[in-house]
Design a binder for these strands. Structure first.
Lengths: 192, 192
DNA sequence: ACCTGAACACCGTTCAAGT
DNA sequence: ACCTGAACACCGTTCAAGT
């Protein structure tokens, strides 16, 4: 990669973080290019699709998430690991507005630049779930797909400004539907 | 309202149903006007915003939903009513792609043409929840907001093509986090 | 009253022309 | 190799001009 190309690429990424922080996943590509002092066509040659750009923006975070799953699995009980990771993932989805919707879409089509990262996250979650199911602390009639669906659903909800304040509470309610371990259901128990 | 105006209005609505069925909530207004044989400006005078158009498209369904809540509340136990209504609402959100996201957004700002309908649905849900909480069959540490968040979250998930097939199962998992009545948690129990 | 076409400022895609 | 400006086909908004 030529020096000027590399410089443009990183400049675009830097600017993109700001613009996306402000406008979410449907930020204007033109706007990003403009603010980066680069032709729109140049931006699009580095990142042919919107998702390619986000893949670059998110890849380190996503890698960290799948790695976090391993760490948690090794360090505590399976149900606590699942809950912690759940929380971690929901927090991640709050990094940029609209990022959950994009990931859910990418999850469907293998051609998306985000597909691999999504699959990795999906797989990490499925592994944690399986572990908890083995211990009998997560409901058995649930697949990795179900978990991914519920996580993204919750992530989406928390993306809505009006629901964001209840994030943690919503997480607990959903978690109490997934986990069977009483220790994780204290909120539910406390109701009595 | 003049005769030609009324004709245009209903023609737009008829066409809009088709276009929106095909393209979801971000169907092109221009496209709808075009197919309806009407100027774009005309469409926009009848429905000044996208949400105003959807309000007209959805109002009968939404009214039916709030009414359904009353019927269910009168006819069965509170937890069963809540579950049935939950199911009904998730089914509704599948009428057009993107409709949940639009409702969640409308739920936030009172200026939206959909605000009133959303508030009514919200209120109906809150009433059912309160009733179930009174019977001790729904967790007490939950608000109508939480219920609305979970319902829309699930509706959003089911809106994703990859999650749609699991709709009913996902509903049961979330419901088992909301309800405390064992009779509604058979799926969870059956796992043992 | 009601409708319309056109002008406007945006968007992402594409490509021929430049260095 | 890499960048760019411009043309293109879209979008929703607005408004002066028509009946």
């Amino acid at each position: 990669m030529r020096a000027d190309a590399e410089k443009n690429r990183s400049q675009v990424l830097t600017v993109a973080r700001d613009v996306v922080t402000e406008h979410g996943t449907d930020a204007s590509m033109r706007d990003i290019a403009r603010r980066a002092g680069v032709g729109l066509a140049t931006l699009l040659r580095h990142f042919p699709t919107r998702e390619a750009l986000f893949e670059a923006l998110l890849c380190t975070n996503l890698d960290a998430l799948t790695q976090k799953a391993d760490e948690l699995e090794a360090s505590t009980s399976a149900d606590k690991a699942l809950l912690s990771w759940f929380r971690e993932l929901v927090a991640f989805t709050q990094s940029y507005r609209g990022v959950v919707a994009m990931m859910a879409a990418a999850h469907t089509n293998p051609d998306s630049a985000l597909y691999a990262s999504c699959a990795a996250v999906h797989a990490a979650g499925a592994r944690l779930l399986l572990h908890a199911q083995g211990e009998g602390t997560a409901r058995a009639d649930m697949s990795g797909d179900d978990l991914f669906a519920l996580i993204t659903a919750l992530g989406w909800a928390v993306d809505q400004p009006s629901f964001a304040p209840r994030a943690d509470h919503l997480l607990h309610i959903v978690a109490s539907g997934i986990l069977t371990n009483p220790s994780s259901n204290d909120a539910k128990k406390a109701a009595y």
